[in-house]
């Protein structure tokens, strides 16, 4: 009888653990709670923040004074200023992938971007802001899309992805498993989407 109970207990334990592993893939941490307001910026001056802006416009999230703000060149001082005004940002989305046109237009280099992003992340950590690393432009922002021999996309990913609390990735840009490896190694939850449009549903769930 005792052996039957032990067997039954082990069997149930196996079912529970197996079930858990199905809902959360190996190495997948729990998705953190994200709140408004959110600051959206880029590490590499790609057009991804514009895409996120359009997505947030469509979400019509309500929060006073503003649910979201896009600042392509957001600095640590912007986070401090909002905190001082009494309405601190609660989430920070940093898009990964570089645009040589974008950086050229802003008159900056990837080194400037990496330095700005590092300070931004440091300040966000200090304030307890949830950091979301987003790579939503697919293969276009994975080295092939920058310039021959150029590695600014990868430098941008290295600066943001391992320091994020959550990764939001368009599958096409993760064909080589780059983001899966980072997520597993750093125990960072990751949401993958097939199409950029799917982000609307994902952000709706995240900011509900």
């Amino acid at each position: 009888m005792k052996r039957t109970h032990t067997f039954l207990f082990l069997f149930l334990l196996f079912i529970v653990l197996t079930g858990a592993s199905f809902s959360l893939p190996a190495g997948q941490a729990e998705i953190p709670k994200v709140n408004l307001p959110v600051l959206i910026t880029s590490c590499g001056q790609s057009t991804a923040p514009v895409m996120l802006k359009v997505i947030f416009m469509r979400l019509k999230l309500e929060f006073k004074p503003k649910a979201y703000e896009v600042k392509e060149l957001a600095a640590a001082e912007d986070l401090k200023a909002m905190a001082d005004s009494g309405t601190p940002y609660r989430s920070l989305i940093i898009t990964m992938g570089a645009s040589l046109k974008g950086m050229g237009a802003a008159g900056i280099s990837i080194d400037d971007e990496l330095a700005r992003t590092s300070k931004l992340i440091e300040e966000a950590r200090r304030q307890g802001i949830t950091i979301i690393g987003a790579h939503i432009e697919g293969i276009k922002r994975r080295a092939q899309g920058a310039a021959v021999g150029d590695n600014t996309d990868e430098l941008s990913i290295d600066a943001v992805a391992p320091n994020s609390d959550l990764l939001i990735i368009k599958k096409e840009g993760n064909a080589d498993g780059r983001f899966t490896i980072i997520a597993n190694e750093k125990n960072i939850p990751m949401i993958e989407v097939e199409k950029t449009l799917d982000l609307i549903a994902e952000f709706k769930k995240l900011f509900k």
Partner: peptide, 16 residues
């Protein structure tokens, strides 16, 4: 770009 890439069957990006 988002709508096309999601509905038309091909991808197109955006550049400044």
């Amino acid at each position: 770009s988002m709508i096309i890439s999601g509905t038309e069957g091909f991808n197109i990006g955006v550049e400044y």
